[in-house]
Design a protein around this nucleic acid. Structure first.
Ligand SMILES: NC(=O)c1ccc[n+]([C@@H]2O[C@H](COP(=O)([O-])OP(=O)(O)OC[C@H]3O[C@@H](n4cnc5c(N)ncnc54)[C@H](O)[C@@H]3O)[C@@H](O)[C@H]2O)c1
Ligand SMILES: NC(=O)c1ccc[n+]([C@@H]2O[C@H](COP(=O)([O-])OP(=O)(O)OC[C@H]3O[C@@H](n4cnc5c(N)ncnc54)[C@H](O)[C@@H]3O)[C@@H](O)[C@H]2O)c1
Lengths: 220, 220
DNA sequence: GCCAGTTTGTTCTCTCGTTCACAAACTCAT
DNA sequence: ATGAGTTTGTGAACGAGAGAACAAACTGGC
């Protein structure tokens, strides 16, 4: 110990690293070999000062007077996030959303491998979705014995979400991505992130309304 | 002026109001008429102090020694967010994700009305999805003349996203929800929120990896 | 080798958000 | 009515994140 903290990247920075990664990939595809913090920041939609500070948490991977080597920086960020290994993902709830997710090509291209599609409804069992067979939810535990499930994606109705989460936690899943509009209670060692369409829309509606009443007040 | 700022709710608070709203709805469905900040905070998954401070930006809608009237508070938050009116929504890109979104019941139940489904692909035109006919993207402007489009949802591939955004802005849309993994450039008066599955997964992967290396370091 | 120009990494300051703690305000029993 | 018990609303301390600014470090020309 008493060594510089090897871990300890601020949460806000962690949330931006994937954005930088994507910007770097785009630049690499365009044949760019080197880029300045200014250029990368523009591609990622952030300020250059913020970008440099974010990258400084990972180490000193740039060269003063030159900029960053695109391929090298991309590798370093990928390594920090954990994209050198691939993460087995299980999707629970193969309805409208679950099927769209299963068909999403962005999973595999970014180091995530969908290993199982689970659902309660018997009429879905055995059906092929995106090259995988939909299996009964109760097979979760036997699947968990064979593969070391890293991430569980919940795409079931809100009232079933907590139950599914409990079962995922019980078989050792420690990262959950929840699409159901429900607050999940999980043990401390389990990470949950939620994607909530309704919330995003309501935030937009708030600003929309605020702009409207503001304009009205200005004209009145 | 020199009156208490009528607008000016912190962004972080705005993002939580929909969560409180949903918790209140759940409580109301269970027949609860009144609740304390402690109880509501638990249902919303936040601390009670944070909840009270958030609500204090809206006004004093609680009663000391008693708590909050569920129906009344729900109305007040809904009014603040703008749920008393309904917002016309257009979805662009009716592929895997777009179809799932079109079928999402949470839209209408929360004051959002999908008025048009647009796509470029001729083979989709005229097809019925969730009771609406898919129309060519070029009809956007004529639709915008008939209805006052409030929110545009982008569910097209990443390389088409900026173009779609530009067209939406051109017809007067000032709120955009973007599902494509791309950074959108829009004028200042346009609000953009993004939902990015890949980013969420990568954030989870980071924490997963950190836990793994941490445990390894502890045992070594 | 040295100087001008460029770009990073970091420090400092400021703003925003969270948490604590408590007085003010209410209810209810006596 | 009064006092004991609750619960809200908010001021103040605290922490995290954003942005400006600059010294250190590199490149390339001469
Ligand atoms: N459709 C969307 O665009 C969208 C958008 C945002 C959020 N959501 C949310 O995502 C969730 C799923 O939405 P959807 O439109 O796909 O709904 P859906 O009804 O089409 O699909 C839900 C699926 O979950 C399965 N299921 C139900 N209970 C289960 C259980 N206990 N175990 C395993 N499987 C179970 C059902 O059989 C069904 O196939 C909902 O919570 C919804 O609110 C959907
Ligand atoms: N499928 C998912 O679960 C998922 C999850 C997260 C993000 N996304 C993102 O959402 C977007 C859509 O994903 P998808 O799986 O539905 O893809 P998809 O290919 O199934 O659908 C895209 C649709 O957009 C239409 N389109 C293309 N260019 C257009 C244009 N210029 N104007 C109008 N329509 C156009 C296509 O005709 C197609 O129907 C992608 O950017 C994807 O990365 C998808």
């Amino acid at each position: 110990m008493t060594h510089s903290t090897p871990t300890g990247i601020p949460e806000a920075t962690v949330a931006r690293l994937p954005v930088y990664l994507r910007a770097l990939t785009t630049l690499a595809e365009q044949g760019t070999e080197t880029c300045s913090s200014e250029a990368l920041a523009a591609a990622a939609g952030v300020g250059s000062a913020k970008l440099r500070k974010d990258l400084s948490y990972l180490g000193s991977y740039g060269t003063r007077g030159v900029g960053y080597d695109v391929a090298y920086l991309r590798y370093q960020i990928g390594r920090e996030i954990g994209l050198t290994q691939d993460w087995p993902v299980v999707v629970v709830g193969i309805g409208n959303l679950g099927q769209a997710l299963a068909n999403y090509s962005g999973f595999r291209s970014r180091g995530f491998r969908v290993v199982a599609l689970l659902d309660d409804a018997p009429e879905l069992h055995g059906r092929q979705v995106a090259g995988l067979e939909v299996r009964p939810f109760r097979e979760l535990s036997s699947i968990a014995e064979r593969v070391d499930l890293a991430i569980g994606v919940i795409a079931v109705p809100a009232d079933a979400a907590q139950n599914v989460a409990d079962r995922l936690v019980a078989v050792g899943v420690t990262s959950i991505l929840n699409f159901a509009p429900a607050v999940l209670a999980v043990p401390d060692h389990v990470a949950v992130r939620k994607v909530d369409l309704a919330i995003e829309l309501q935030i937009l509606a708030y600003h929309q309304q605020r702009r409207a009443t503001e304009a009205e007040g200005a004209s009145a």
